[in-house]
Design a binder for these strands. Structure first.
Lengths: 344, 344
DNA sequence: TTCACCTATGAAAACGTTTACATTCCGGCC
DNA sequence: GGCCGGAATGTAAACGTTTTCATAGGTGAA
């Protein structure tokens, strides 16, 4: 059915070996015959069978990305970064989503194993035993946002702790004293690190105060509920730090809906700097994470390991964050500020 | 190096044929030996080599998606829809982006061809000759948002024309009389269809008026510029219909920045209903496109064709749109409206 | 007991490549 | 002219599966 290398060989009146050599740019071949063969191949619209190729070369030129989800601005940015780096290196990208489910992730991992040269895995679950048990030892793997003992795998993390610490300090520095946090889902590594940063910052500046923390799960909805809950409480905070931007947005709507002015009555900050955070009103102060960079770096690390498998590898790396101050926590910025925002 | 079917066979003291049968759930095999083989395979952490498998079975169980970009809320939603349907059918997803560039798209298409069972291609360029020349005849393909003669390929389109027509009529129905359009990039199929819908609606209700159209390229930036341009013009419109939401948002900021009240002074509408449009202030009236559904439908169509290749196929299909009215064009909605929005 | 038949298993070919090795061809040197 | 060497090309094995066909082993009937 499909045209194979044999068809090209027959049509060009050469052996399959010559066709292979012509296509792969081997030397020791007349420029004349090469041109001829290439011409025939193009005429027949021949494309090599990747399976057969990977079988003998033991390389698929494909890497698999297993992410918690493919939905939302965070993952969109991440995939873009990965794709950019992959295409620069001539690698193909096989995407898969786990939805945080161990069973689904295991199945995806098994299915991926036989068809890729390496793996990019984001598994924000604190419990990393699943990874230890399931990840193939033999397949080069780079983990992202994953709490894992430094032993086994190469890991790339965000500086969740540092970002949260810096943001909390920033809020304290602006004069906010009763700061509440809307934390992320239980068992999520990023969430727990951000909470830890928050706690440490509070502990250092107000050792005797126990900061208020309400529960969320990274969705806007949960941020909305958290906002309502905070307003209903006895000691209303004068600033709220949400563990991600989506929750901050939800919280913002809860506050505004209740007639609370942001930032005049209550200041608000988020984490991630997803595009939306620039568009809400007031624009959201947040911790900028270079999401696309995270993806790019992870892929480049993986690609380097594929190229020279036995070079010594730095095992764990942390990508810095940076605070982006917008109107939601006290900067009086008019609408112009958004357009001057340097990420714009 | 990697453990193959032979290793399993040796270890289990059976032939490779039996291992293959055990793994693929063949009948005519003792439950006892099957269990034994499966046990050994699991113990050795055997995973089949997808390349070898695809070589003999002539199926890769992978489909390739070539999109203009992987960035932004639109594509994020689209990929999610595709992924959902793919995983439901046990298909893997190879993603690739063309950035609207013919060379890049051609390279991606060639690279994809040898490794997938089918292709999902979104190519919003009006000039479809590239596709005709490059797309492999032999590979099942479903096109999205593509202007192509009905002859060759299966196509899934949005009802861009109908959506724009309906939205323009809605604006007219609300009493807006001087409606301007911010159109999309030259040569983009979706953009030109939306413009056509706009023109037709205007022509039917105000035959003698020539509606004002300013140029944009689907980015927020261009929407901002378009907004400024409209304000600078002699005849200020009292409503603006942007060809997509990102431009509408940019336009909104331009208007607000100049002290124009939305919707009191100028009404505003967009197209796509990306998540951001609910978060801007005022929330944006727009044409809802079920983006994830588009991806899902496209993949399902492709999967069906893979399953029975010679069944008669409906060649072109159009997915309906629906108008979502929010505060930006005259509905006096308080902040609650957002949370009552049924897509929320 | 013998035969036939059915079921469980094994042997080997086939899939489309790449590449090590073998062969041919050609020119130059003695 | 014969020989050597290098360049161009061909031959065939190997990669890891699935599947067709063959074989062995067992069971039941005559």
């Amino acid at each position: 059915m499909a045209v194979t290398i044999k068809d090209v060989a027959r049509e060009a009146r050469v052996s399959v070996a010559s066709v292979s050599r012509a296509l792969n740019g081997h030397s020791s071949m007349t420029e004349r015959t090469r041109g001829h063969i290439l011409g025939v191949a193009a005429r027949l619209r021949y494309v090599p069978h990747a399976g057969a190729r990977s079988l003998i070369m033991r390389r698929t030129h494909t890497i698999g990305a297993l992410l918690p989800d493919l939905h939302g601005e965070f993952f969109s940015e991440l995939i873009r970064g990965i794709d950019l780096a992959a295409r620069a290196r001539g690698l193909h990208l096989l995407v898969s989503s786990s939805h945080g489910d161990v069973g689904e992730a295991g199945a995806a991992l098994r299915a991926l194993q036989g068809r890729v040269d390496g793996l990019l895995v984001m598994w924000p679950n604190v419990d990393a035993s699943f990874l230890r048990e399931t990840l193939p030892e033999t397949l080069p793997t780079v983990l992202m946002n994953t709490s894992v003992e430094k032993a086994a795998f190469s890991t790339l993390n965000l500086d969740n702790y540092g970002g949260a610490l810096a943001m909390t300090r920033h809020l304290i520095g602006r004069g906010y004293r009763r700061i509440a946090m809307v934390c992320g889902p239980e068992g999520n590594f990023d969430a727990s690190e951000r909470l830890r940063g928050f706690h440490d910052a509070i502990a250092r500046s107000q050792p005797r105060v126990e900061a208020q923390v309400v529960h969320g799960d990274f969705t806007e909805e949960s941020g909305y509920r958290a906002g309502k809950q905070l307003l209903a409480g006895a000691k209303r905070p004068n600033a709220v730090f949400a563990a991600n931007d989506m929750m901050a947005v939800g919280c913002m709507y809860a506050l505004i809906e209740s007639g609370v002015r942001v930032p005049d009555d209550i200041g608000l900050a988020g984490f991630d700097d997803i595009p939306i955070s620039r568009y809400v009103n007031p624009p959201l102060t947040t911790v900028r994470v270079r999401i696309a960079d995270l993806g790019r770096s992870a892929l480049e690390r993986l690609a380097m390991r594929l190229e020279n498998p036995d070079a010594a590898q730095p095992l764990a790396e942390t990508l810095g964050c940076e605070i982006v101050v917008r109107a939601s926590c006290g900067v009086t910025a008019d609408i112009h500020a958004r357009h001057n925002d340097k990420t714009h």
